[in-house]
Amino acid sequence: MNGIHDMGGMHGFGAVDRRPDEALFPEVWQGRVCALAGYAMGAGLANIDAFRHAIERMPPDRYLSDGYYGRWLYALETLAAERLGADAAVERPDHMGSVVREIDREPRFAVGDAVRTWNRHPQGHTRLPGYARDRRGVVADVHPACVYPDTNADGRGESPEYLYTVGFESRELWGEEAEAAATVYIDLFEPYLEALE
């Protein structure tokens, strides 16, 4: 979805505030939320993709104001409200095992292949960042097939797809304002890609 979470390339967020000795959890509730989310997902409240999508569905102002673990808290509340009602049953427990799956077809692309990303704006969850839509890149790595987040996030199943690391020249992404000698590598699922002649 075209949401506030899709931050790559945005202007206006200022300087990075890198403090050397911050606490891992400055407030006690943040640590509890971190652990609660792990256990609740492991027990079947939601898979990792549905959890990320619950965060993305937050109102954008809350996404920015609630902070990292505040977003996790919001997502837990959303998923609990949607899934822990009187009649609702939790999903099959997600044992948080690896997302790698065996599939009975070969990868369409190989290292060195030129590809273009698709130009789609799905309302649901997807892992193609907006800044890399409809862009030309080169396959840099071929990974095993993995659970496809776009379908796994909303109950349509795992439908595993091959995963690729695709390198994009900075200029292809950012045009004339691009910095020199920079490449951005993004991990993209096979359906996002088409072969370039």
Binding site: V99, L128, V147, L163, A181, A182, T183, I186, D187, F189
Partner: peptide
């Protein structure tokens, strides 16, 4: 510069 945007489970 090579930037790695970890957009999947790698």
């Amino acid at each position: 510069v090579r930037v790695w945007d970890a957009s999947a489970e790698v």
